[in-house]
């Protein structure tokens, strides 16, 4: 396992060898922080969207099943479904907030 400094040096040489006239400056610490914030936001929102998506699907699926069995209770069941989904959505919203924080507050 290379240490970060060597890794950076190798990356820089590869970049400059590959396209010498376009890369004009070396990678600075500030660039790395910004790049980390961007990747963090992407990973946060991407993986954070898996759970709520599947979870809300379960809630709505069971609601559909229940309404199929007892259509006269549709109002109550839809309300319960929406409350369940809203709670399940909360982690998706946390991911969204954290991603926006990384993009606009931390990574500047």
């Amino acid at each position: 396992m290379m240490d970060p400094a060597t890794l950076l040096a190798v990356l820089e040489t590869t970049l400059s060898q590959a396209d010498a006239d376009v890369v004009e400056s070396a990678i600075t610490g500030k660039d790395l922080i910004k790049a980390g914030a961007l990747m963090g936001a992407g990973i946060c929102m991407g993986f954070g969207a898996i759970g709520p998506g599947i979870g809300e699907g379960f809630a709505a699926g069971k609601a559909c099943e229940a309404i199929g069995r007892a259509p006269e209770e549709a109002g109550l069941l839809t309300r319960t479904m929406l409350i369940g989904q809203a709670v399940s959505e909360s982690t998706g919203i946390y991911s969204l907030v954290v991603a926006l924080l990384m993009l606009f507050v931390v990574g500047v």
């Binding site: 991407g46 898996i50 709520p52 599947i54 979870g55």
Partner: peptide, 9 residues
Amino acid sequence: IGGIGPGIG
């Protein structure tokens, strides 16, 4: 990756 969950759900 964000599209996986909603698709399955």
